[in-house]
Amino acid sequence: MKTGLAAQVVLKFFESRGVDAAKASSCEDFFAEGLLTSIELVKLAVALEGGLGVRIRPGDVSYDRFRNLEAVVGFVNGKAREQR
């Protein structure tokens, strides 16, 4: 899986929620900025599973891992390495 693919899935998710890709890319904290809630976080996790084929466990879903684009990409890449 390419690193860029994870970012694309995240940005596509935000675009479907009416959020500009540039805003989502530069956002430091999705939760503080109101771009993500706990319910939308799970939807994003399911979108990542569907788009990238990674299996996300309930324990994987946390504030720190989904705080911003960089954190999500880092987390997804870690999961992909683990499952390879």
């Binding site: 706990s38 319910i39 976080l41 799970v42 996790a45 399911v46 309930p58 879903v61």
Partner: peptide, 9 residues
């Protein structure tokens, strides 16, 4: 999260 993840899937 465990409940919501399971139900959303």
């Amino acid at each position: 999260y465990p409940v919501l993840l399971r139900l959303t899937r």
